[in-house]
Write a protein that binds this DNA or RNA. Structure first.
Lengths: 113, 113
DNA sequence: AAATAATATGCGAAATTGCGAATATAATAA
DNA sequence: TTATTATATTCGCAATTTCGCATATTATTT
């Protein structure tokens, strides 16, 4: 596997590695939204939001379209959503395992008592 | 979507956001390997490798098993490989789009001349 | 017990990231 | 033209990441 591929993967993962940016992408699942809409829905500083959008732009994860005064954002490739969905599955599996581990521990605990 | 879920996703993405750690995981596709094997195959400082392994451990992405003198690493949940594979597909799609964009530009260029 | 081998950890420096405050830019409205 | 609205950029700072170097820890061998 070429190192450039790993480099690319790392950069995309990096772009996804922030709760705010994940929230932004989640909101784009149903189509394009203005930059400003995130400020309201996520309740963050305008500058902060704009910086997170800049990260997603830099990695070409989103594309923009200017309409009059405002900028519409959309996700370039919906494959990104597959990544997020896969990660949700991963989360649930992990939680599941943690729960059953706890149950095991409780069983063992009861046996000792 | 709960914020804790986005937090979790971000942490895992973060753990994957380094070429060295991606390389480590790639090598674990065929089963467990000793910590030392990465030092040789990747040609990095022993301490550096160990630090990257610590990141993967902290996020529970890998699990370890001590055998005598050495530590065997393995991937806890192969879903992680699905993430890497999906990212490879994403890469190829992006490259493909870039190529066809270039071709479009060349066509346009020829029309102008 | 002392030496060796495999792995992990602590430390300091450089680079990167995240954030708020202020400022810049661009389009529209007055 | 001036004011307003939407968005982006710059700056300074704190926090985090990455790395090499040195050191610690644990198991094995001599």
């Amino acid at each position: 596997m070429p190192d450039s591929l790993r480099q690319f993967k790392a950069e995309i993962f990096q772009a996804l590695a922030h709760p705010t940016r994940i929230a932004i992408l989640d909101q784009l699942r149903n189509g394009e939204l203005t930059a400003g809409s995130f400020v309201e829905s996520l309740g963050l500083e305008q500058a902060n939001l704009s910086q997170h959008l800049a990260v997603l732009r830099a990695r070409q994860i989103v594309s923009t379209r200017k309409v009059g005064n405002q900028v519409l954002y959309s996700v370039r490739d919906r494959l990104i959503f597959n990544m997020l969905d896969l990660m949700r599955r991963y989360f649930h599996k992990q939680v599941g395992e943690s729960v059953s581990l706890l149950e095991e521990m409780e069983k063992a605990e009861r046996r000792v008592r």
